[in-house]
């Protein structure tokens, strides 16, 4: 099993005829994801990688059963596209673009919460359950990162995900589902919100968190562990330990101001809650082995 997406997840690609949309649709289909339809206004009747294209999500869901959407839409049109997917009843939505205006990030998360849907992103590589399905732009062909296995991974960064996950795979681990929540200040979904699903997933033995300075997402994970919502082993790497205070280093969401969001605070909270924390990516594999008694 896996969480968020598997072989049965029926996917709509919004913005399917664009350069990125068509390129990654081909890859999603090739790796086995069930892409049922695509949407680009004005392009109904076309096909991309054998997938039929419709003018609107409304017209696509009238012809196909679907439960998830991935958006290859420019940042300034992302909110509109998310509303379109939500209004057609899609409950899992991944939005890739970097650069969504902050006030629209808030409105997207607010709308998702109101309708009980999960929006992942923006500014993310998406979600992948290696060997099963992908709503994202991952180089699944790089075996030393995207190997199927029993590790749930959650991350705020793309490039760092390759770096850290490769260290776990080097020690013999693989990935059940990897979720990139994205580097925006107000991502659609937060780390702790996926912990119940990882807890319930029999194939996920442990969770690896790839965090970053700033915000409170790592602290929320610690709270969920303290509350007993998540009880499996958890290993965390958090980048930005030596970043100077007040500088916007890393993602827009990553800024330390006046004693909140510092990496030291995050690591302390996670350790107190029973997580194992790595101070560098190369230690992640050994900590996972230790946590799982191998």
């Amino acid at each position: 099993m896996s969480i968020f997406c598997d072989n049965s997840t029926q996917i709509i690609v919004q913005g399917i005829t664009g350069k990125e949309g068509s390129f990654w649709t081909k890859h999603m289909v090739e790796m086995g994801a069930k892409v049922v339809a695509g949407v680009t206004p004005g392009k109904e009747g076309q096909e991309v990688a054998g997938v039929p294209v419709y003018h609107s999500v409304y017209r696509a869901v009238r012809e196909h059963t679907a439960d998830a959407a991935i958006l290859f839409v420019p940042p300034r049109f992302t909110m509109d596209a998310v509303y379109e997917a939500l209004d057609s009843g899609l409950e899992r939505i991944v939005t890739i673009a970097d650069g969504i205006p902050l006030h629209e990030q808030l409105k997207i998360r607010s709308a998702a919460r109101a309708s009980g849907a999960q929006v992942v992103g923006g500014n993310t590589s998406g979600v992948i359950s290696p060997g099963r399905s992908m709503l994202g732009i991952f180089p699944y062909w790089i075996e030393r990162v995207y190997k199927p296995g029993s590790l749930g991974v959650m991350t705020r960064s793309g490039s760092l995900t390759n770096e850290v996950t490769s260290m776990a795979v080097r020690e013999g681990f693989g990935v059940s589902t990897l979720i990139g929540v994205g580097g925006d200040p107000v991502p659609g979904s937060r780390f702790a919100e996926f912990l119940p699903a990882f807890q319930a997933d029999p194939e996920t033995e442990a969770v690896l968190i790839i965090g970053e300075l700033g915000g409170t997402m790592e602290e929320e994970v610690a709270q969920a562990m303290q509350a007993g919502i998540y009880t499996k082993p958890l290993v965390a790497f958090v980048g930005g330990q030596t970043a100077p205070e007040g500088k916007k280093m890393g993602h827009a969401g990553a800024i330390v101001t006046g004693g909140t969001g510092s990496v030291a605070d995050k690591l302390a909270a996670l350790e107190t809650a029973g997580a194992r924390v790595a101070d560098r990516p190369s230690k992640v594999g050994a900590l996972l082995k230790e946590a799982l008694g191998r």
Binding site: S159, L160, T161, I210, T242, M249, G250, A254, R280
Partner: peptide, 17 residues
């Protein structure tokens, strides 16, 4: 001269370590 916000930040840490 690195690629990606998270990786660059991590390399920044590693240099200091």
């Amino acid at each position: 001269m690195c690629a990606g916000a998270g990786l660059t930040t991590t390399v920044f840490d590693l240099v200091h370590y």
